[in-house]
């Protein structure tokens, strides 16, 4: 399968402590990549570079063979969508309004009937229809996260970039969010890059994992090869037991090294 999204020798930062050093990874269409690594490994920076929010100091990000920096902001927005960790709440919009923002790159000054239909469908699918006209500030963290996911999905892109989408959620919402992402990826052939802390969820929902440490790729492949007791100990400084419970990978940290 041809590479749809590829990160090509991307470095970021200058001096003796670069944030990313020659990171390369290639993803085919519909592939879900779990981006893992300890705090400060460079996950967020890589996410920003793939989104085009930051420019790498060297290297490039190719989308279907084209450098994403050669796309206009609007064209890029039709191809790559972003689910951030949180959203501002100063002037809370309603759930429907927030989700409708995802249609921005597809519309003129105002949303069309189709835009409204897309949002309606997504809100129903993410079980948000009952909250549709509530302000974001009145929602729980999990509900808010689902709205942000709905907004990104409303963008109808073929790449989805999620920055720790489950960090602030309870286990039910964690599973729900990632299940939707994986279903959409399968259904629509959406390529997804998910920066995530929870190793168990990462292993369970990703097609492959990319393990970063201090800006360098230290592992890439399926979860079994990337997350071994040795790599986890080296990268996270934790001794873990890795096992399977009813086919679900489980990582049980038992001691700091």
């Amino acid at each position: 399968m041809s590479d749809y999204l590829s990160v090509d020798k991307v470095s970021f930062g200058y001096g003796s402590r670069p944030v990313l050093r020659e990171v390369s990874v290639a993803l085919s269409k519909g592939h879900i990549l779990g981006l893992i690594g300890p705090n400060g490994a460079g996950k967020s920076t890589l996410v920003r570079i793939v989104l085009g929010l930051s420019s790498p100091s060297s290297g490039r990000v190719l989308l279907d063979g084209k450098d994403i920096r050669d796309l206009t902001p609007k064209a890029r927005a039709r191809r790559i969508a972003y689910v951030p960790q949180s959203s501002p709440l100063s002037f809370p919009a309603t759930v429907f309004e927030t989700c409708l923002l995802g249609r921005t790159p597809h519309m003129g000054a105002s949303p069309s009937a189709n835009d409204l239909a897309v949002v309606e469908e997504l809100l129903c699918r993410l079980r948000l229809e009952d909250f549709a006209f509530r302000p974001m500030s009145e929602l729980s963290g999990g509900e808010r996260q689902r709205v942000m996911l709905a907004r990104a999905l409303a963008q109808e892109t073929d790449v989805l970039v999620l920055d720790e989408p489950t960090s602030a959620l309870d286990i039910g919402n964690q599973l729900f969010t990632l299940r939707v992402v994986s279903e959409i990826a399968r259904e629509r052939g959406v390529t997804a890059l998910v920066a995530i802390h929870d190793l168990s969820l990462a292993a369970r929902f990703s097609d492959s994992l990319l393990l970063l440490d201090k800006g360098v790729v230290v592992g890439h492949g399926n979860w079994q090869s990337t997350l071994t007791e040795t790599t986890v100990r080296d990268v996270y400084g934790v001794n873990v037991e890795i096992g399977l419970l009813r086919d679900i990978p489980v990582f049980a940290p038992h001691e700091l090294t």
């Binding site: 920003r48 989104l51 085009g52 929010l53 206009t72 902001p73 609007k74 064209a75 890029r76 927005a77 039709r78 790559i80 969508a81 972003y82 951030p84 959203s87 501002p88 100063s90 002037f91 809370p92 919009a93 309004e97 927030t98 923002l101 995802g102 921005t104 790159p105 974001m136 907004r151 963008q155």
Partner: peptide, 13 residues
């Protein structure tokens, strides 16, 4: 206002 700088930029603004 409701999505912030980064998301706005990711929306092509």
């Amino acid at each position: 206002t409701s999505a912030g700088d980064d998301v706005s930029r990711s929306l092509g603004i």
